[in-house]
Amino acid sequence: IDVRFTVNGLDVTVRVRTEEIAERVKELAKNGVDWREIQRIAEELNK
């Protein structure tokens, strides 16, 4: 599942395995978490 969001004007796409992880990623993006941090968290959750 590809999750797309915009952080500080940057369009970011993170690929995740499940809808649940996708929701977590969207939540982080909404809360203004840095995209590199979101990427790292997504990689952890995908394991």
Rank of each mutant, 00 (worst) to 15 (best):
W35S: 06
E43C: 11
G32N: 09
E23R: 14
V16C: 10
V3G: 01
Q39F: 14
W35E: 04
R24K: 15
R17Q: 11
E20F: 12
E27F: 12
R36V: 14
N8E: 09
E43P: 01
I41N: 02
T18E: 02
I21L: 05
L28A: 04
T6G: 04
L28K: 01
R36K: 13
D34A: 11
K26S: 07
V14I: 15
V7R: 05
D34Y: 10
W35H: 07
I38Y: 02
L45V: 02
I1Y: 12
E37A: 08
V7H: 08
V14Q: 02
K47C: 09
V12F: 15
E19A: 13
R24H: 13
N8A: 09
R15N: 13
E43K: 08
E37I: 13
V12C: 07
L28T: 01
A42M: 06
K26R: 15
E19T: 11
T13F: 11
D11T: 15
I21N: 03
I1N: 03
R24C: 11
I38F: 03
R40T: 07
R17K: 13
L10I: 15
L45E: 04
K26C: 07
T6Y: 07
E43R: 07
R40P: 01
V3Y: 03
N46Y: 04
E27P: 01
E44N: 07
K26M: 14
V33K: 06
G9Q: 04
N8Y: 05
V7Q: 15
F5G: 02
E20I: 08
V33H: 07
E44Y: 11
K47G: 11
I41V: 08
L10N: 09
N31S: 14
T6W: 09
A42Q: 01
R15L: 08
K30W: 07
T13L: 10
I41M: 07
W35Y: 13
G32K: 07
N8C: 08
K30S: 11
A29C: 06
G9Y: 03
I1W: 14
R24T: 13
L10A: 09
D11K: 10
L45T: 02
V16L: 03
V3Q: 01
A42Y: 04
R36D: 13
I21W: 02
R4H: 15
T18N: 14
W35T: 05
R17W: 13
N8D: 14
T6A: 07
D2N: 10
E43A: 11
R4W: 12
R17F: 13
R15D: 02
L45M: 12
K47A: 15
D11E: 15
G32P: 02
D34H: 13
T6E: 09
E23D: 11
I38P: 00
T18F: 03
R40L: 10
D11Q: 15
A42G: 02
D2W: 15
R24I: 15
E20N: 07
E27Q: 14
E27C: 07
E43Q: 09
E37K: 08
T6V: 13
A42L: 09
E27H: 09
Q39P: 01
L45K: 02
D2Q: 10
G9N: 06
A22S: 05
E37S: 08
D34P: 14
A22H: 03
V3C: 05
E19V: 14
E44M: 08
N46C: 03
R40A: 10
E23S: 10
T18M: 02
D2Y: 15
I1F: 15
R24N: 04
R36H: 13
E23T: 12
L10F: 14
V14G: 00
Q39S: 08
D11P: 11
E20A: 14
I1E: 03
E27M: 13
T6P: 05
R24W: 07
K30F: 10
K26Y: 11
R36W: 12
F5R: 01
E23Q: 14
D11R: 11
T18I: 02
T18C: 03
A29R: 05
I41E: 05
K26I: 14
V3A: 02
E23L: 13
L10D: 07
D2C: 13
R15Y: 11
G32W: 04
V33D: 03
E44C: 10
R36C: 09
T13D: 03
V7W: 12
L45W: 11
K30E: 11
T18R: 02
E20T: 08
V33Y: 09
L45Q: 03
N31R: 13
A29H: 13
A22Y: 05
E20S: 10
E20V: 09
R36T: 14
E37G: 04
V33A: 08
K26F: 10
D34Q: 09
V3F: 05
E44D: 09
E44R: 07
N8V: 04
K26Q: 09
E44H: 08
N31F: 09
E37V: 12
I21P: 00
E44S: 07
K47M: 15
R40Y: 08
Q39C: 12
Q39K: 12
R36Y: 12
R40N: 07
R15T: 14
R40K: 11
N46G: 06
K30Y: 10
R24Y: 13
